[in-house]
């Protein structure tokens, strides 16, 4: 088999399993991105339009006390980690249909940096 023919196709499948941008997540840049992209609805320590984010990494979706989630998120079994957060920021509706956020971060590196920041602020 000619490896030149199948290798590009095989590489194209890799992001579906492990996003290479995750390995280079920059929490410091992620803090700036969080400040510009997420701050309209979220804070680390206050429930606002969205739930507070400190501790989100490793937490079950829909589990922040005193925040009113959509039924879809509340009943979800998703646990927030590298992969689920990356997918969530890519397209929330594909992770938990019926969720309310719908905000998308288009660039993989931006997503990875935001995830790195959330992970750091969650003490992980």
């Amino acid at each position: 088999m000619n490896s030149r023919r199948w290798l590009p196709a095989a590489l194209a499948l890799v992001p579906a399993f492990v996003d290479p941008a995750l390995a280079n997540g920059n929490a410091e840049r992620g803090r700036d991105l969080y400040e510009s992209r997420c701050i309209s609805c979220h804070s680390l320590d206050a429930n606002r339009i969205g739930p507070k984010h400190r501790g989100v990494y490793g937490r079950k979706a829909g589990s922040v006390p005193e925040f009113t989630y959509s039924p879809a998120v509340k009943s979800s079994s998703v646990v927030w980690n590298d992969q689920t957060l990356m997918r969530w920021l890519t397209n929330p509706q594909e992770v938990i249909p019926g969720q309310r956020m719908n905000f998308r971060v288009s660039q993989p590196q931006d997503r990875a940096d935001i995830v790195a920041y959330l992970k750091k602020e969650s003490g992980q």
Partner: peptide, 17 residues
Amino acid sequence: QRLERGAANAYLGVIPS
């Protein structure tokens, strides 16, 4: 200023959805 920038980005970020 923080809230307005966040709001602009929020609206832009939901357009594809």
